[in-house]
Amino acid sequence: MAKITFITSSNEKITVAATEGSVMELAVNNNVQGIDGDCGGVCSCATCHVFVAPEDVDKVGVASEIETDMLELADDANEYSRLCCQIPVTDAIDNVVFTVAK
């Protein structure tokens, strides 16, 4: 079981828990504002863009090349950007904080 916190652009803090699926699915199922997950998680829409808290980067891991190419052309992407449909929910990311990009 991993506990995950989202901070939306209206500064709402939402903490939820799950054992499986992707971080995008978790956000969509909990109506986290700003995460739409339009493409269902296949890395084609960039509507699941989040910033990983700097102290959590090691836990979350790095983006694949395909994800990086996608992020390169996303609005306001920075070194902490991830497409959260590409992050599986596992115990490894317990207590991680994601800030929603839009």
Binding site: C39, V42, C43, S44, C45, I66, D69, M70, Q86
Partner: peptide, 8 residues
């Protein structure tokens, strides 16, 4: 699973 298509 990973399908960065540009169909849309």
């Amino acid at each position: 699973k990973v399908n960065p298509h540009v169909g849309f």
